[in-house]
Design a protein around this nucleic acid. Structure first.
Lengths: 253, 253
DNA sequence: TAGTGGTCTAGACCACTCC
DNA sequence: GAGTGGTCTAGACCACTAA
């Protein structure tokens, strides 16, 4: 694959900002200066700067030098957000968990909305309790369409990463997802599984994952024990991935 | 200001996708074809396509035509997410609310972390109950640094939009924000203010807003009644604004 | 008015996919 | 091997900012 000039320049600038060479509030050198310094054409520098603008590290507008807004944090790769196990390990925690139930069900209205599966067809549902360093953290319900459920069904419950296995052995790649976050009061059954008192607060995370053709691969509803974990997002004038929605608009009940 | 060629092309493609001309799973025409059709150079078409890739409408990788992943939703402007009133009106709801309290406080550790204000200095805090069509929905605590608090203090409680007023009359513009979302159980005082039963679940939204120089303008902690509202986000292999964090990392307690 | 970034052009070469 | 998008070049012009 090899690494590209614009990516190296972006990385170099990020490191210089982190090192304090350009503190928040200060301006970056002009594109001309940077293109001389890195010995590339101005267009290549622009590509690098566009990355910094997109992730909110830097602010740009016409006629004004680019200004540093904040110290850039490391950008997590897509998989690290999608996969609980990968995220946990990267944080230095030991992920674990048990499959509580795995079963075929008849697709209902929610499955139809989230997966685009016809009602009445089969859907494979896996229910897991997830742990972090041995402590219960989250209750996960994942739903697969029939064709994928038949593959998932054959995978060992203890497989380190379902995602990696699907990619390597079946050429199935998760590349896009849509998420909705809310809160709810723990129901009796959930509270028992998580070992918390009833009516505790839970952070709810619903998600549809797709491959690069837009085909829905799974939908999932995860419930985190309140206070263990939060979701972090940035946005800016130039890019705003965030929206408020009503629960009904996203597989609500 | 005028609108630009690449933006018009992006818009035209979005509309064609929405109209079903390129359904999810199908491929877009090649960049060469598009550049002939729109009578612009290939580079301009690329700029348009880059937008669609960035917001997850379309998937691209080397050597393969761009493929439609999903029907693009309208992208909300930054202000619409930051400002409750603007969001509500756009949804066709009538926003309302009362200031419960507005007072000067001594900056504590949380103010220091979120605003970069020295502990012991003054911070202005405004507490509001927000309503949607007359129904209580959210409890909002906003904290301003001293210099900005002195301006906000003079603003009428009933001003339609604090944001707009700060922009127009004081040249203060919100351009960036960082957010964290979690859940918590309603405390007695909050439950009383919102008119819900104690121990109801709340969706917690903490936020730091900045201007284009990276200066923190406010931090806020909002609590939504569970079930009224959810947060929606998209991510993809190419852009992932999402991270899980521990509550301590974002003004936690 | 000088300097900046934003847009746009018209090419080139390369990595990759698919046939 | 033909076709594709991704990267990169070396310019041009314009809108905007700040002095």
């Amino acid at each position: 694959m090899g690494t590209f000039a614009f990516a190296e320049i972006a990385q170099a600038l990020v490191e210089e900002i982190q090192a304090g060479k350009y503190p928040p509030g200060s301006s970056l050198p002009s594109e001309r200066e940077l293109s001389e310094r890195f010995r590339v054409s101005p267009g290549t520098v622009r590509m690098a700067l566009r990355e910094l603008v997109a992730d909110g590290t830097v602010d740009g507008s016409r006629g004004r030098p680019k200004r540093v807004v904040r110290i850039p944090r490391r950008q997590a790769p897509f998989d690290e957000f999608r996969s609980f196990a990968q995220w946990a390990r990267r944080q230095g925690h030991e992920p674990g968990g048990d499959v509580v139930r795995a079963e075929w069900r008849i697709a209902d209205a929610q499955d139809e909305l989230m997966l685009g599966v016809q009602r009445g067809r089969r859907v494979f549902r896996v229910q897991r309790v997830r742990t972090l360093d041995g402590e219960k953290v989250m209750l996960e319900h994942t739903h697969y369409p029939e064709w994928l459920g038949e593959i998932v069904e054959t995978i060992d419950d203890d497989a380190p990463s379902v995602t990696a296995l699907l990619a390597d052995e079946h050429n199935i790649h998760f590349t896009h997802a849509e998420h909705a976050f809310g809160a709810e009061r723990a129901r009796a059954a959930d509270a028992d599984l998580l070992g918390i008192t009833r009516s505790s607060a839970l952070l709810v995370h619903r998600r549809v994952s797709r491959d690069s053709t837009g085909r829905a691969l799974e939908w999932s509803s995860d419930r985190y024990i309140a206070g263990k974990i939060m979701l972090s997002v940035g946005n800016s004038w130039h890019s705003n991935p965030l929206q408020w929605i009503t629960p009904e608009a996203f597989g609500g009940e």
